[in-house]
Design a binder for these strands. Structure first.
Length: 427
DNA sequence: TCTGGGGTCCTAGGACCC
DNA sequence: TCTGGGGTCCTAGGACCC
């Protein structure tokens, strides 16, 4: 049976999550801001219509916001993560072959199950209705013979009301499909970014249709194997498989901009320790160990009058580790080498690198089994406590208690679905 | 005053091996 | 006169995704 992929995607995901609990936001212009209330990372259709671009700094749109009563909200990742899990759980009822591609998108293989619902489109309509009813979230669904086609179909479903949120490319005739492809800008294709779109335009390739009609050889020669694949995928030749098992990460990063500038080494140490705590917990979650830690610091590159400095350094570990204390010690050592006084720092972060499967760790000459076992027990206790009582309940003392560098989130909605004291109340 | 935080893959070139 | 053929590993940079 030929593969059929579906892409299910929540419309304006973060904004939609907020609207579920605040229906008064319906029909109003709403933006959700990035960490630190910095940039717009989600926009309602009303805000998009006002011309606000993805990633636009909040301070630059404040005048517009005032003029049009734009509602701005800080990111509430706890809420979005939980809502995402709920939507994904519903999708698993429809197909066992699912790849959770991002917080608001999943790919499904449906060729073996669609007939249970009377075909692709009816299945899409059923999914859409159930997610709406059970979570309150609006989704669009695209079907295609490949992932790239499903993405394209999803785009059509989202932008053209006549599809009612469900578009099945596999049910279209060749000429209908071509007609749609002629209407859509090549830059919308999954895998075509800003740079490649510009180069394609120079070659007078402007629509999806133009791209589909380019020869694979030319695509390969001009843009490489990735674009050749994209071209084939658009033509219906499946090259990108469904990744139902999420591969373990090859690097784990944790970084944040500061709510207010940090000048002291002490302040940077606190922040770096906090990042290590977060990253190390993720590392243990995927049962990996890191062989190197990268740490970096940056001043505010937007304030060009201020003295600028940015530096990073990799600290190799003699032995792969997943122990927060060892990783932290390495990172702080690196930080001390990097630190220059007299600068106002805006951001710092760490990256855990050269990850390996912990159970397959290479032994060293100086292994101390007893110390290893003890470390594993301490980390297990720490993770259990934090899983039960919330992240950060048990943490490195180096993180401190004051944390003036903490990011801003002044307009965050309650964690309606995950915190007992923040549940919505019906009166 | 104020500008996010994660990730992946591919390619080319250099250095090295036999 | 004439100068092989096959590899690996690492790094930097560029592109993409959400």
């Amino acid at each position: 049976m030929a593969p059929v992929f579906a892409l299910v995607d929540v419309n304006n995901f973060y904004v939609s999550c907020e609207r579920v609990f605040n229906p008064k936001f319906d029909g109003k212009p709403v933006v959700v801001l990035s960490n630190n209330d910095g940039c717009a990372v989600a926009r309602s259709n009303e805000v998009k219509a006002l011309g606000v671009k993805m990633g636009e700094p909040w301070f630059k749109m404040k005048a517009l916001a005032k003029q049009h009563d734009i509602i701005a909200l800080s990111s509430n990742y706890t809420l979005y993560g939980d809502m995402s899990n709920r939507a994904t759980a519903i999708l698993r009822d429809y197909s066992p072959d699912i790849e959770v591609y991002s917080i608001d998108e999943s790919f499904l293989r449906v060729e073996s199950v669609a007939h249970l619902h009377g075909g692709n489109a009816p299945m899409g309509t059923a999914i859409k209705a159930r997610i709406r009813q059970w979570t309150g979230l609006p989704v669009c669904i695209g079907f295609g013979a490949t992932k790239t086609q499903a993405k394209f179909a999803n785009h059509l479903a989202k932008k053209n009301p006549e599809f009612n949120g469900v578009c099945d490319l596999t049910a279209m005739t060749e000429s209908t499909r071509s007609a749609w492809m002629q209407k859509i800008d090549v830059a919308e294709v999954w895998g075509v970014g800003r740079r490649i779109a510009a180069r394609l335009n120079v070659m007078d390739v402007r629509t999806v249709f133009d791209l589909v009609n380019m020869s694979p050889t030319v695509l390969r020669a001009q843009f490489g194997v990735v674009m050749e694949r994209t071209g084939n995928e658009l033509r219906g030749v499946s090259c990108i498989a469904l990744e139902d098992l999420a591969p373990t990460k090859k690097q784990i990063m944790a970084s944040r901009s500061f709510g207010e500038m940090v000048t002291s080494l002490h302040g940077l140490c606190e922040a770096v320790s906090w990042h290590v705590d977060r990253a190390a917990a993720k590392l243990r979650e995927q049962a990996s160990a890191a062989s190197a830690v990268y740490v970096f610091v940056q001043t505010n590159r937007f304030r060009s009058d201020d003295p600028q400095y940015s530096g990073g350094t990799v600290i190799p570990l003699t032995d792969a580790s997943d122990d927060t204390r060892e990783l932290s010690a390495a990172a702080l050592n690196g930080l001390k080498r990097l630190y220059r006084s007299g600068y106002a720092y805006k951001k710092c972060g760490i990256m855990l690198m050269e990850l390996s499967v912990k159970a397959e760790r290479q032994q060293t000459l100086f292994d101390n089994d007893e110390a290893r076992a003890k470390s594993a027990r301490v980390m297990a206790v720490m993770d259990t406590i934090n899983r039960t009582w919330g992240r950060g309940t048990l943490r490195s003392a180096a993180i401190g208690n004051v944390q003036s560098w903490r990011m801003r989130a002044e307009m965050r909605s309650p964690r309606y679905t995950t915190a007992w004291d923040e549940l919505p109340v019906a009166s």
